[in-house]
Amino acid sequence: MRIEVKDLRFSYGGTKKRKTEKYALDGVSLTIEEGEFFGIIGQTGSGKSTFVQHLNGLIPLKEGMGEIKVGNYDLSDKRVNLKELRSKVGMVFQYPEYQLFAETVEEDVAFGVKNFFPEKSAEEIKDVVKTAIELVGLDYPALKDKSPFELSGGQKRRVAIAGVIASRPEVLVLDEPAAGLDPQGKKDFLELLERLHKDFVRTVVIVSHDMDLVAEYCDGAAVFKDGKIIKRGTTEEVFADRECIFKSGLDLPVVEYLKEKLAEKGEKIACGTKISEFLDAVTQRWGGKT
């Protein structure tokens, strides 16, 4: 599903903003193509989270405040089926493990599926849940009857993700997905995300402060600042615009930092933002085996 947002505005004070009040989103236009692994970056309070919460109607689009189209769903249409849309656009919040509530892992993962597809039989639901739990790399028979609260932090997060992907969304939005995990947990989790994107969810959108993560995993990115998008492009294009990155108070990813330093010394390296690309480029230039 293609995501197309045009001139979106939003203020926490409602449509009629007071003079002193700033728009949390001030004319945001952004298209995310189907199949992209997309990064949304910017400082805290730049409007990133507010923006993504519009994509599945958690924050309703007010009249005259812009247009949002997700696939065939037009959010400015009052009759749009929000429930159906939410089944197609899965959303994983920051620290998603804090939304777990059911007595067993299986029940918790089934929550969304049951809400979205009440017509499904118990057998069908069980199948879907099993697939989802296995997809996130957990042992279904061992964990399904356990209380989600007995699990480790990393496992809880996986259960929470399973609960979202069980309804087979076409778009998966994640807000700061790796926050609070230890290095190993983070690495495993990002690999999981990459795998999900490859075989299961067409489009992945992540909101993150971690520039290295965005540089490594995302194809495209948008930079938010004060409720506006000040840059949109491939990750390569976005990070190449140094001025924009610094202006928005962000850091360069390590690979870009190295490229920058080398360029200062007259060593221009033409490569993308991913580590492997950088390694290849440097190896070639410095003489090593690729």
Binding site: K186, L258, I275, G288
Partner: peptide
């Protein structure tokens, strides 16, 4: 021990492995 090498250290190691001096 569950530590992650600092990001730059991982890149440096990989370069050495590939024969960059």
């Amino acid at each position: 021990l569950g530590l992650e090498l600092p990001f730059a250290a991982r890149i440096a190691d990989e370069l050495i492995k590939r024969g960059v001096k």
